[in-house]
Write a protein that binds this DNA or RNA. Structure first.
Lengths: 260, 260
DNA sequence: CGGTAGGTTGAACATCCTCAAACCCTGTGG
DNA sequence: CCACAGGGTTTGAGGATGTTCAACCTACCG
């Protein structure tokens, strides 16, 4: 169910990282080369902890499978803070990592590659201006999606929340070419959906059925089909966050420098 | 109600910025001097928009009063994404600003000072290593508090949410000396509390009464008194987020450089 | 003294949760 | 081939939690 061997879920490599960053800023050939050669592949099974947030976070990129940043409460309740999708970074940033007692857990089998090379490139603005800009924009986008999560949990109904969440995942996967306009792989259990949307499993189940009955989605076999993305977007007041690099007051070299 | 003229709310200046950053990293004298002389004071009344997020965000520090980052939905619902308290930055960062359609609005009369001088200092790691580290840690803390907000909205009950939110505000104000152990200024309306906690005004009102009846807080006249902070923390599973700068792989100068 | 913003209250209702059970699919072992 | 186990999904019933609407109260302010 978690993506057969020929599913898009399992057949990507560092090129998803490249695809994502390239869309955020036009990369130089040597930046692309750097990204394309990320290695030290690691495979982790479902439920593997990719990072304990207390220890220093390793700089890695998720290249296949889905993961989630999770916060546990003392009594066993848990909240998915954000999803981590192929192409997303884990700790590839010089900003100190906050993550109040969060853990990153694999929701499917995952593959990661080492991102130290990128981290090193960030120290060299002369040669990696564009890459640095892309990495910074990626971080800003991550933050924007966290804001979406707050709005979702705070002010949307169950029905709207799930519509909104599905659209977020679709938009993010489309950036790396892993979702098409009307179809995307969907390896999440209803329990994961519940923990992300702040609902109970049972209510997630019933709400999904409602979405199905309303002919908005089909959901089975690890795939979602979006029957009417625009209608979903209207229901959830979904607006894809955009980021733009801030206009600089200084010279170009400083800009790249700045973006971290 | 929003803080009489002798309330702590109205009598701070750039020193709250200094107090906050100093607590995050040991500053050099010339950094402290730089912060102490921030000027271009601006006063804004309640409900003033301090930033439209679409336009370029000005780099400023809030030095007195409270503000909030707010997201409006098409049908008039609104969600407070985060509170902005004295000492907090508005756009003092080189990371591009994401803020999916958010607005920063003054919840009380506020005073801000220009932060361009800090922004410029960020370009000069040689002389402002410590300041740069502090600014980066402040940004990381902001992010950590956003995670708290997600957990609050996603998995806490109304009762727990308000306890948790009050403790967050207390912890943040204590960093700048604006709250004591058991008492803090509290200029929020129940409407603002509702928009922050994802509840209705009516239910906020009733839940606060419950907290009062349980002898956990007193709340009147723009002040909260915490009768038993530890009990509140236990109820809400409140854990104050900590950030630490990431151990560096390179030399010290690079570290400061990195933290952005 | 009237207007307004914020706080409080009651009653009816909607949303969402819990508990418990059944069902379905898939993989495993006899 | 079948029985079984286990994870995930689905269903029903009852109840807790939170919302809505409408009214009223209070303090403050011109």
């Amino acid at each position: 169910m978690l993506g057969s061997s020929r599913s898009p879920l399992t057949r990507n490599g560092p090129e998803v990282v490249l695809a994502r960053l390239r869309r955020l800023a036009p990369l130089k050939p040597h930046d692309e080369a750097l990204l394309a050669t990320l290695k030290d592949w690691r495979h982790d099974p479902v439920n593997a902890e990719l990072t304990h947030d207390l220890s220093s976070t390793p700089a890695r990129y998720l290249v296949s499978g889905w993961a989630a940043r999770i916060r546990w409460l003392a009594d066993g309740r848990r909240q998915i803070v954000s999803f981590i999708l192929p192409g997303d970074a884990l700790g590839v940033s010089r900003r100190p990592q906050p993550r109040s007692q969060c853990t990153v857990v694999a929701l499917t089998p995952v593959q990661t590659v080492d991102g130290q090379a990128v981290l090193r490139a960030l120290d060299d603005p002369e040669h990696h201006e564009a890459l640095i800009a892309a990495v910074a924009l990626a971080a800003a986008l991550d933050e924007a999606w966290m804001i979406e999560q707050i709005v979702r949990l705070g002010r949307l109904t169950a029905y709207e929340r799930l519509a909104h969440l599905l659209l977020e995942l679709r938009a993010r996967l489309m950036m790396t070419g892993l979702s098409s306009f009307s179809q995307m792989p969907f390896p999440l259990t209803q329990e994961a959906l519940a923990d992300a949307s702040g609902l109970s499993i049972v209510h997630v189940n019933r709400t999904i059925q409602q979405l199905r009955r309303d002919n908005l989605i089909e959901l089975r076999g690890g795939q979602v089909r979006f029957l009417d993305p625009q209608a979903l977007a209207d229901i959830a007041d979904f607006r894809e966050p955009k980021v733009a690099s801030q206009p600089s007051t200084t010279d170009t070299r400083q800009v790249a420098f700045n973006l971290l």
